[in-house]
Amino acid sequence: MKNRLKQLRAERAWSQGDLAAQLGISRQSVNAIETGKYDPSLPLAFRIADLFGARIEDIFLRDVQQQEA
């Protein structure tokens, strides 16, 4: 699943480690989510959304192909 996590993080000049520390997860997790290798659980997605003051759907983007299917 594509997401805007890297962009949002860059806007705040946070490193992956900074974001990981604020979310209480590993830097590897942040990297995996940013690169679309791992989709976070709903509770973690809510924590990410709360941290950026945004809605989940503003951060995590639906796959266009999934929408068409």
């Binding site: 209480g24 997860i25 590993s26 590897q28 997790s29 995996a32 989510i33 791992y38 976070p40 973690l44």
Partner: peptide, 8 residues
């Protein structure tokens, strides 16, 4: 292990 990605 409370980190869900590492647990996976």
């Amino acid at each position: 292990l409370d980190d869900e990605y590492l647990r996976m």
